[in-house]
Simulated scan of single mutants.
Amino acid sequence: MHSRSRDLVEHAVTKVPAVTLGFWIIKIACTTLGETGGDWVTMSLNLGYLIGSLIFLAAFLVLVSAQIRARKFQSTLYWATIVATTTLGTTLADFCDRSLGVGYPGGVAIVFALLVASLAIWYRVEGTVSVESVVSARVEWFYWVTILFSQTLGTALGDWVAGEDRGGLGLGYETSAAIFGAGLVIIGLLWLWPRVSRTALFWSAFVLTRPLGATLGDFFDKPIAQGGLEFSRFYASGILVAFIAGCLLLIPQRAARRAARD
Score class of each variant (00 low, 15 high):
V116C: 13
L88I: 06
R71F: 07
W79K: 07
R98E: 12
A70E: 13
L88E: 01
Y123V: 04
G158N: 02
L114K: 10
S99P: 13
G154A: 08
A117Q: 15
E140D: 13
S118I: 10
S133T: 10
C96S: 15
Y78Q: 11
Q67H: 14
V108R: 00
T90V: 03
G127A: 07
G163V: 01
Y78D: 09
D97V: 11
L92F: 07
T91Y: 02
W79V: 09
G127Q: 08
K72W: 10
T128L: 06
F142C: 03
F142D: 00
L100I: 13
Y123D: 06
A80D: 03
A70T: 12
A162S: 14
F73Q: 02
S75A: 10
Q74H: 13
A109R: 07
W141N: 08
E140V: 02
E140P: 02
V129F: 06
G101D: 14
T76L: 13
L148E: 01
A109C: 12
G154F: 02
E126W: 13
C96I: 15
L115R: 04
I68F: 10
L77Q: 08
T86P: 04
F112Q: 09
T146S: 14
A93F: 05
K72V: 15
R98H: 14
L153T: 00
K72N: 15
G103Y: 11
V108H: 00
I121D: 11
A66K: 08
A93N: 03
I82Q: 01
W141G: 08
Y123K: 09
G106M: 11
R69G: 12
G107K: 04
L153M: 08
A137E: 05
A156P: 07
V131W: 04
A113P: 11
P105R: 03
W141F: 12
L100D: 15
S65A: 12
Y143M: 06
Y123G: 03
S65R: 05
Y143C: 04
Y123H: 12
